[in-house]
Design a binder for these strands. Sequence first.
DNA 1: ACATCGATCTACT
DNA 2: GTAGATCGATGTA
Length: 200
Amino acid sequence: MAQTVDELLDLLATDVLLAAPALLGWELVRGSRRSRIVETEAYTQDDPACHAFRGMTKRNAVLFGDPGFAYVYFTYGNHWMLNIAGHEHGVAAAVLFRAAEPLEGIDEMRSYRNVPKDSELLNGPGKLAQAYGITGADNGLWLLGEPESSDQLRLVPGTPVRQVVTGPRIGISLGTELPWRYMDADRLQWVSRPRPKVQQ
DNA sequence: ACATCGATCTACT
DNA sequence: GTAGATCGATGTA
C-alpha cells in the first residue's frame, strides 16, 4: 500500500495496475463519515471496457487530465460510481472504488442507505456512492489535498493491508475479462458480490 | 432528434 | 439465481 499522498500520486501517474492495489487500506472521508477501502478495479485507455477507450468525451474528460481527481459518472439509471483518475495528462486511466469497510459516521451513512447490516452499507460501487452522497457534483474534485470544506470528499492514508487478492473485474461486457480487481484478503466480508472463496 | 446500452441494485422465486 | 427498474451519455441520422 502507498503510505503517503506523494507515493500514491507517483503510482497513479505511473500505472493504475500498481495504484489500484496500493489504494486498498486508504480511507475515504467526508465530514463524519470514514471508511476503509477494501476493493478496487483498474481501467486503462487501451481496454474496451474503459470509458475512455473511444477517446475523450464530455463525460470522461477528467480521465484525460492529471491523476488524483475524482471521476464520477451515472449508470443503470440509478447509480453513481466513484473513480480516481490516473496516468499523465492526455492519457486516460482510472481506479474504480468498489467497496469499503465502514469505520465512523455509520449513522450518517444509514441516513442515505437504510439497510439492516453494516456489511451492506458500502459493499458495491453504487452503494458506496449512495452512502456518501456522491453525485455528479463531485466529478473533477481533487481527492488528495486539504479539503476546502469539512464536507468535501477526500482520501487519506490508513493502516497497511497485509495481503491482496486479485480476481476478474465485475460487470464487464466489452473486451476481455482481466484480473484487475483487487481486494483486501483480511476483509473479504466487506467486499461486493461475487465474493471470492475465503482463503487462509 | 431518437434508439441503444450500461464498471448496478433490489426484490422476488 | 435472475428479471426488471431507470435515465444520462453516446452514436447514428
